[in-house]
Amino acid sequence: MNDFNRNRFVEFGLRFYILLSFAFVFAPIAASFVFSFNSDRFPSIPLGTFSTEWYVAVATDPLVWEGLRNTLFVGLFVAVVSTILGFGAAYTDFRYRFSGKSAYLALALLPPTIPVVILGLAMLAFLSRINLSGQSISVIIAHIVICAPFAMAITRLRLSQMDPDLEAAAWNLGASEWSAMRHVIIPFASPAIFGALFITMAVSFDEFAVAWFVSGLNETLPVKVLGFLQGQVSPRINVIGTFVFVISMTLVIFAQLLLTGRTMDARAASDD
């Protein structure tokens, strides 16, 4: 870091810029966090006194609990299924060469690029036609469509770091294709698999638009928040916002730790 080739003013300027960007991104979230502990009913400066009354209000609201239960149930289910699907797609890309592979990859990675409103509307139209709208399963299906590409991208990145001889070496040493999958591919990809579980769960946990279209009465927490907003302005939104933010960030940080930790191992290994 104490490289004499660097200009100290430029260095300072760049650091200041980074701080500014973070402030810009996190200020609204921080505001929501601060106001969630404010006794006043409306978010205004100067602040009232410190209070946890809104937390109590949220914790005693059965509707919030129901939303949380729905969100968690959907999130877990989505995380597991989309990670399995994403792993399968990534392994297909790693292992096989076939014509139309780039089209296959493009299709598999497409869903997150579709505007969520369009995706939500299409999901609603489709799911209601096959009598699957307005249930938890509808949100699960829709979220899997959105999340599986993330799981695939993460697993694919990890598999691309794998020496392609590794799997063949396992076969060569007497492992059948299933054993090689179990004893070589999955252990190697495990940081990415866990990372994908956390990320997909976080995505599902946060996702609002599609869930709003298809959830019906089984609203997830973000959809509930909108319901609150439309009904009344209440600092309870700040509480839920803070709560959702903390959970999502925790999941993302877990994923990040898993993914970068192993990458650094691999880098250290290839260094000598």
Partner: peptide, 16 residues
């Protein structure tokens, strides 16, 4: 996997 023809790889392919 049913042949007994173990191989030493150019990349060594040790399981990391």
């Amino acid at each position: 996997w049913k042949r007994d023809t173990p191989m030493v790889w150019q990349s060594l392919a040790l399981f990391p």
